[in-house]
Nucleic acid binder design. Structure first.
Lengths: 177, 177
DNA sequence: CTTATGTTTCAGTTCTTACTGTAACTCCCA
DNA sequence: TGGGAGTTACAGTAAGAACTGAAACATAAG
């Protein structure tokens, strides 16, 4: 290779590819499927909205895979589909505001993960509340304590997800000694 | 079956089994493996510390499975092993304080999930900061915004995990409009 | 109505992760 | 130093999640 001035455009492309790949790996560690995280990373850093075909091409994935994960991202509220006038194809763009991303994730995790857990615990507590056997009291109290914690966490998440601007975290930082 | 007064002891056992099974399912939805969540549920509601064999027997799982998940739970700080005098076997008991459980989980997730993500992003930002190509600025700013958010979240998690008592959540609830 | 273009579904496959059961290892005691 | 009790490691297997490719389906234009 030559010693000519490096090609900045290529450099940017590489940086972005690295970001997409590594974000996929991180998503994976977080329990989010790799492809979904990669599509998200791609769209977050895309200068313009992208079609399914462009995404398939960039990530070298199948149409079925791309389609499914795009729908999933839309259902999380992390991306939205947009139409370009005079074009029948569907294009996608990501929510780029980090705080809004965080709110969307918080909202969905609350709905999908916290709410069902609360349901289960309410059931268990209701069942065990009236049992009169050695240890029943302790069992009931323990489960009730977890339930009560989750209920509080649930409403904190609800409020955070509704809050308009990103003042919560910096402020929490100040408050916590 | 008869209409004789129900057996409260059996009722309690059933309630506990239900809790363990469903907690496993929830853990699963949260990306935690089913068995690990079940062992945790079992120990949280156990009246006394339990040995590996008792756990294997209760959950009908193999020794290898039990052993691995117990070690994992210990490494998360969610359970600890205790010795009974005059007994060579290892027994396990769970941290039952819900706030402490939460702190342990926060601490570990921070270490295992947030820290590596921050590393990756620092790398990307460093690489892309100096690129001079169309769109490089926007790319850099977008990634830097995510990084900055994660850094704030990271230090909030750190402080929460260190905080001694469960005043944070109720108080957050009050503050958030 | 027919064709072109774009989207969704799904059966089959591949890849990953969790689990079993056994064999190897460690440690304590006689 | 031999034996028994307990713990760990690991090779093989089972279960589950993600992905592919192609066919079926929808919709707009001609």
């Amino acid at each position: 290779m030559s010693n000519a001035p490096v090609d900045s455009v290529a450099e940017l492309r590489v940086a972005r590819e690295q970001f997409v790949a590594q974000w996929g790996a991180i998503g994976n560690a977080w329990g989010i499927n790799r492809t979904m995280a990669q599509i998200h990373a791609l769209l977050i850093t895309a200068p313009a909205s992208m079609s399914t075909d462009e995404i398939m091409d960039d990530l070298k994935i199948s149409r079925g895979n791309a389609n499914g994960n795009l729908r999933e991202l839309v259902s999380w509220g992390l991306i939205r589909s947009v139409l370009r006038r005079g074009d029948r194809k569907e294009y996608f763009e990501a929510e780029k505001d980090v705080w809004k991303m965080f709110c969307a994730i918080t909202r969905e995790r609350r709905r999908r993960e916290v709410a069902p857990a609360i349901d289960v615990l309410r059931n268990v507590v209701a069942r065990s509340g009236s049992i009169d056997a050695p240890g029943a009291g302790a069992f009931n109290e323990q489960v009730a304590a977890i339930l009560s914690f989750l209920e509080t966490a649930d409403s904190v998440m609800d409020k955070v997800a509704r809050s308009e601007q990103n003042t919560v975290l910096p402020w929490a930082l100040k408050f916590l000694k």
